[in-house]
Design a protein around this nucleic acid. Structure first.
Lengths: 341, 341
DNA sequence: GAACAGCGTGCATACGTTTGCACCTGACTG
DNA sequence: CAGTCAGGTGCAAACGTATGCACGCTGTTC
């Protein structure tokens, strides 16, 4: 492999000069620069990044700790889109993106520790938004740049990029209310996720502000598999007194719900209206197109990446929390004027 | 940051000894090893990976060149699942995974060149399966370890991990034939992808073997957006003489087709049967569950990663092409005994 | 009792860069 | 004409680790 010394020898200059040419040092003569650059091109020279990192103490790399394979994020489009946002921004800033994953919860700290202590990355992007995350504590102690996608109540002064999920759920619920519904249920995601808690809170807030009394038995939690949406809906429909509309945590679950309803002979939105979250591409081509809150997943990743880079470069971070705007996309599943009771 | 020298000083030994402890050198006394390990633990020492790489000429990292953001793979579940397979295998072997992407085609070579020449990764995983890919040529010239997910006809001696897409399409088509269909159409993906060509070939082969004459106007190509499936189907249905069954390139497109059919007042599988590919989780909960060929995406990524690691470690590669088995999952969209004509 | 084997450790060098400092040259100043 | 200055370049040290070689020590063998 051709090194800086080889180039220097061919060009008849010292390695330092070549190095300065590479970094566009101001005090290199135009002619030398031109000559060296030509030789680099001709020899196909690229600086060895390891050597560079060793002295510069910087890796030009961002780390991402993936949620465990078993976890939900991998199950649907969310992750791919998020990653696209992250990588696009990082790449445009000349950074690479490093991915690690773990199989057991207990390995998480080890994996992070390896990245941080081994100085393999300049900053870390955390995807999990569990209520309590030891990784956050570790990163804070070591004053290592990191950004959280999501939110954590248990730690202070953490830069996190998130949607206003309370507001988003409130918007979704209010939309149903504005369509004349008063009997509104909620199918939530895993309750240990902050986002689930936020959306549930938004749902309750909307009901409260509309002076609708929440019915506890109408708010349930399922895991992220669309099968569970399928199962959940039959529970609802067998209730003697059932809701006329549902807010659903996630499009994948909503698909299951929709399918269950069809199978049971109900139709959407006539018998029951639906609004869900994430607005994955397929939402629009479901048998009944599903109204969904677009939470700007790409934007989320892009922004997180952007702020992490700033932080990694030692620049001050503007705020403690960045909110990515959401937008309710109304489709057929919730367009319905039911008779007011 | 604590280095090997610090540990050495505290333990009262030389850095070499510490280094040997870390790598479990046989000629280190048990007691020294124990003592040094205790100190490493206590000081939170992790070897600097950059320095390590510099001397060992190895990075313990795999590179992935993402398809361009605009490209299809990002659009659906395929990519997330593939990545999960790749990263899981790599991580279990102690490797990290580095992701880069480019915005323009012309940047691809630059990006790859940076990784290879800069010795940033030990091997590269190529996701694109375009018929002609300059990146493959570059990697071959430089004798750099790489594995192709997909297939390329233009280069010899490339280790590629792929499905038998010809067979898969043949199976899908045969399934429709076995259901009594003789009027079978094909909605293909982008024609510059090898996989599209293979599936089209399999479709033709099945027809041919069943002595069914292929109708050129029944085989069309669309891009990967599900909207295009939506549009395509109206073209079919306005034909005076239309197929009774369709093989569709991808689940996302199939969703669009399904939706189009419903909108036009047709039902599946009664008016028209469908079989598609990829078997994404949502296929099973479509309004009519879609029959789909499961191509083992996770398995594809996992295996590719596995062979790339072998190659990166200088081990010989067993074969030129590894085939990941596929499996047709029959669902309602294709279960239909139509009257034989 | 000398020679030798084997174990455990340290010294020195190398990996490919960056960068502070010093040096040289020529031009310009007073 | 000596002195200053700025531009252009090279020297050498440093980053943190791995490893071939040499060295000292202990115990064994003839």
């Amino acid at each position: 492999m051709v090194t800086i010394k080889d180039i220097a020898k061919i060009a008849g200059v010292s390695p330092s000069t070549v190095s300065r040419v590479v970094s566009n040092h101001p005090r290199i003569s135009h002619e030398t620069s031109r000559k060296v650059k030509a030789i680099m091109e001709q020899e196909g020279y690229h600086p060895n990044i390891m050597a560079k990192s060793l002295v510069s103490k910087t890796t030009q790399t961002l780390g991402i700790l993936l949620p465990r394979p078993a976890e939900e994020l991998f199950q649907n489009d969310f992750f791919g889109e998020l990653l696209r946002g992250i990588v696009t921004q990082a790449t445009s800033a000349g950074y690479d993106t490093l991915i690690t994953t773990v199989t057991k919860d207990t390995d998480e700290l080890m994996a992070i520790s390896r990245l941080v202590r081994g100085q393999r990355v300049d900053g870390i992007l955390l995807l999990s938004s569990r209520t309590s995350d030891p990784v956050i504590g570790f990163l804070q102690e070591n004053e290592f740049p990191f950004v959280l996608i999501g939110r954590s109540d248990d730690y202070q002064d953490v830069l996190s990029i998130d949607n206003n999920n309370v507001q988003a759920a409130q918007d979704a619920t209010n939309h149903l209310i504005s369509q004349g519904h008063t009997r509104i249920g909620f199918i939530n995601g895993p309750t240990n996720l902050v986002v689930s808690q936020d959306r549930l809170a938004g749902y309750h807030k909307a009901l409260c502000e509309a002076n609708i009394v929440a019915r506890p038995e109408w708010a349930i939690a399922v895991d992220m598999m669309q099968q569970s949406g399928f199962r959940a809906i039959s529970g609802y429909m067998s209730m003697p007194d059932r809701p006329s509309a549902l807010v659903v945590f996630d499009d994948a679950i909503a698909f299951g719900v929709l399918r269950g309803l069809t199978e049971l002979g109900y139709s959407v939105p006539e018998d029951i209206s639906l609004v869900s979250f994430n607005n994955i591409p397929l939402s629009g081509v479901a048998s009944t197109p599903i109204s969904s809150v677009d939470i700007g997943i790409y934007h989320l990743g892009y922004t997180a990446s952007q702020f992490l880079l700033r932080s990694a470069q030692g620049k001050p971070l503007p705020e403690d929390q960045i909110i990515i705007p959401h937008r309710l996309i109304v489709r057929k599943s919730s367009i319905n004027q039911i008779s007011s009771e």
